[in-house]
Design a protein around this nucleic acid. Structure first.
Lengths: 126, 126
DNA sequence: ATAAAAACAGTAATCATTACTATTTTGCGA
DNA sequence: TCGCAAAATAGTAATGATTACTGTTTTTAT
């Protein structure tokens, strides 16, 4: 990722302009509003590059799609297994990271906590 | 999942007999040692059923494969982004679950914590 | 024993992701 | 400013994990 490109800037803006955790195809559709000819391969390549350079993170949930997040601060995620939304939550403590680094002797570079369950909306709308 | 089947039993045994977090194709290859004619579709179907009935859990990491775990106790996972192994860790506390349920008003049914980083072995073998 | 329901093996289809190619854009040094 | 090598792009083809389908076999209950 040495050279500037308009496409990469648009993709990053899309991610930074939402607090959702979108899939590639959603990012693609949003980017096309600004750049109608942008290629899907370009979206994939730039997401990989942006992740590699630490400007975005990837969120893995069990729906078979890649999800990305423009918020790189350490935070928690809640995944609703009913509506399949991913919610952000502030991280109340960082004790776990320290605990694991000491006990496993590992170096933790990213912290991704996923809680699965049923969210407030979904538990109301049975 | 109303009827017994030998195939389902073998698949569950495979998962309960390892402390790794195998992919479908690994489970398939292990199951074939006992049942040489078992079908890949049968493995997928039973993994879905076993997960639905709470006998196994799915672990999502960003490698594009489904991973499963025969240990359904609440515990943490560490994912090495170098060797791509997933490690189990005991959960030192359950405060986060309570915190989130109170603050989000949600009902958490599963707790999946993934730490990404580089594990002990991989940090030695540069 | 028998019949309906469930599960199976085997194969084909789907579709998110990756790879490839020819063309265009970017950055840098002359 | 010009030219060139590196990087990036659009568009298309290939890959491969997962799902769907079909005809047959197994299971369970009557």
């Amino acid at each position: 990722m040495k050279n500037y490109s308009k496409q990469r800037e648009v993709i990053l803006n899309v991610l930074q302009g939402t607090n959702t955790h979108p899939t590639v195809s959603w990012i693609y559709s949003q980017a096309r509003k600004t750049l109608p000819n942008i290629s899907l391969g370009t979206v994939y390549r730039n997401l990989t590059e942006l992740k590699k350079s630490g400007q975005i993170i990837e969120v893995s949930v069990e729906d078979g799609f890649q999800h990305f997040d423009g918020n790189t601060d350490t935070h928690l995620h809640f995944y609703c297994t009913k509506c399949h939304n991913i919610y952000d939550c502030a991280c109340p403590e960082n004790q776990l990271k320290n605990y694991l680094e000491e006990n496993l002797g590992c170096n933790i570079t990213e912290q991704k906590l996923i809680f699965n369950g049923v969210c407030k909306n979904c538990s109301v709308n049975i």
